[in-house]
C-alpha cells in the first residue's frame, strides 16, 4: 500500500469526525442566537449594551465560573454537588480574612480561592482514594460547606467595608474607556485558561481519558487516582473564585445564597453538550450553556414572565438539550 493510498483512504473519515465534533457546539450556539433574537424582538430593552453587559454578562459570571470548574469533574464521569454551598463558604471565608482578620486584599482573595481548592481536595480524596461515589461524597460536602458557612458567619452576612478595592474586583472596570465590569473580564479570561488547560495540557488529556475509560487509562500506566484528585482540586479553585466574585458583586458575603447554584451550573454544562456519563464535553459549550441560562433568566424577566415560570422554562431547555444530544449519539 502506498502512502498516497493511505492518505486517500482517511480523508473522508477525517472530515466526518470533525463535523460531528463541531455539531453539538454549533447547535448550542445556534440555540443561543435564536433565543437572543427572540428576546430582541419581544423586548425593547433586551438588545441594549447596558442590558447585555451589565445584566446578562454580569449574571453569567458566577454560574459560569462554577460551570467551567465543574466541567472538568463532569468529563471524568463525576459530579460535584458542593459547588453552590462551597461558594458560600468561600465567600464567608473571604469576609473573615479581609474584614475580621484584616488581611490585605490580595491575601484575602488568595485565601478564599485556596479554601475552594481545599474543598475540592477533600472531595477529590473521597472520590479518588476512598472510592466514594462522587454523588455521595459531594452531597456530604454540600451539607458540610453549608453548615460551616452558617457557623463561621453566625448566620449573618459579612459586609465588606475595610477594603473598597474588593468591590471593584467585580464591579470596577480595569480597562479605561471600555465599560465592561471586571467580573466579566475575569470570567472570560479564566474560561480561556480553562479551555487551554482542557485541550492543550496533560491535565485535560487525562480528564478525557479517565471519563472515557478509566480502566484502560490505568492499564496504559496513568495514575488515575492522582489525576482524578487533581481534577476535583481544579474544580475547587473555581468554587473559590466564584465565591470571591459573588461576594464582591454583592459587597457582602451571604452565607446562605449559594444553594441552588450547583444545579444551575450543572445545567449550563449539560446544555453545553458535556455528557454526564463522562468522556465528552467542551469548555466552549459550557460558556455557551452559561450564557443561555443567563439570557433566558434576563429575557424572561424583561418580557414579564413571573420568576416561578423561569425555572419551568429552564427545565424544559435542559430536557430539550439533552434529548438532542441523545439523538445525535444514537445516530452513530
Amino acid at each position: 500500500m502506498t502512502q498516497t493510498a493511505v492518505q486517500g483512504a482517511q480523508a473522508p473519515a477525517l472530515n466526518r469526525g470533525r463535523l460531528r465534533a463541531g455539531l453539538q457546539q454549533l447547535l448550542a450556539f445556534a440555540s443561543l442566537i435564536v433565543i437572543v433574537i427572540f428576546f430582541s424582538l419581544t423586548s425593547d430593552v433586551f438588545f441594549t449594551y447596558d442590558n447585555l453587559v451589565n445584566n446578562v454578562l454580569v449574571s453569567t459570571v458566577v454560574v459560569g465560573l462554577l460551570a467551567v470548574g465543574t466541567t472538568f469533574v463532569i468529563i471524568t464521569g463525576g459530579i460535584d454537588l458542593s459547588i453552590g454551598t462551597g461558594m458560600s463558604l468561600c465567600a464567608v471565608m473571604s469576609g473573615v480574612f479581609i474584614e475580621n482578620l484584616g488581611l490585605p486584599l490580595w491575601l484575602g482573595v488568595l485565601g478564599a480561592v485556596l479554601v475552594g481548592g481545599l474543598i475540592g481536595a477533600v472531595n477529590g480524596a473521597a472520590v479518588a482514594f476512598f472510592k466514594f461515589p462522587p454523588f455521595i461524597a459531594t452531597l456530604a460536602m454540600m451539607l458540610i460547606a453549608q453548615g460551616l458557612a452558617l457557623v463561621i458567619s453566625h448566620t449573618s452576612p459579612i459586609y465588606f467595608t475595610k477594603a473598597p478595592g474588593y468591590i471593584d474586583l467585580a464591579s470596577g472596570s480595569i480597562i479605561p474607556g471600555i465599560d465592561v465590569p471586571n467580573a466579566v473580564l475575569i470570567f472570560f479570561v479564566t474560561a480561556i485558561i480553562a479551555a487551554i488547560l482542557l485541550n492543550k495540557t496533560i491535565v485535560g488529556r487525562y480528564t478525557y481519558a479517565i471519563g472515557s475509560n478509566a480502566d484502560a487509562t490505568a492499564i496504559s500506566g496513568i495514575n488515575v487516582r492522582r489525576w482524578t484528585w487533581v481534577v476535583y482540586v481544579i474544580g475547587g479553585l473555581f468554587i473559590g473564585l466564584a465565591g470571591v466574585m459573588i461576594s464582591a458583586r454583592l459587597a457582602s458575603a451571604q452565607p446562605a445564597t449559594g444553594q441552588g447554584y450547583e444545579l444551575q451550573a450543572i445545567a449550563a454544562v449539560v446544555i453545553g453538550g458535556t455528557s454526564l456519563a463522562g468522556g465528552k464535553g467542551s469548555m466552549v459549550g459550557t460558556v455557551i450553556g452559561s450564557l443561555i441560562i443567563a439570557v433566558l433568566n434576563n429575557g424572561l424577566q424583561l418580557i414579564s414572565v413571573p420568576q416561578e415560570w423561569q425555572n419551568v422554562v429552564l427545565g424544559c431547555v435542559i430536557l430539550f438539550a439533552v434529548y438532542m444530544d441523545m439523538l445525535r449519539r444514537r445516530e452513530r
Binding site: Y208, S212, K280
Partner: peptide
C-alpha cells in the same frame, strides 16, 4: 476486549501517558 478510550483520537490513544510535550505540562 479492547483497552481503548473511545472519546480520544487514535493518536491520543496510542501515546497516552507518553504524549509529546512542551515542558512537562503543555501538549
Amino acid at each position: 476486549e479492547f483497552n481503548l478510550m473511545p472519546d480520544l483520537t487514535v493518536a491520543q490513544n496510542i501515546y497516552i501517558g507518553r504524549e509529546p510535550r512542551w515542558g512537562d505540562f503543555l501538549l
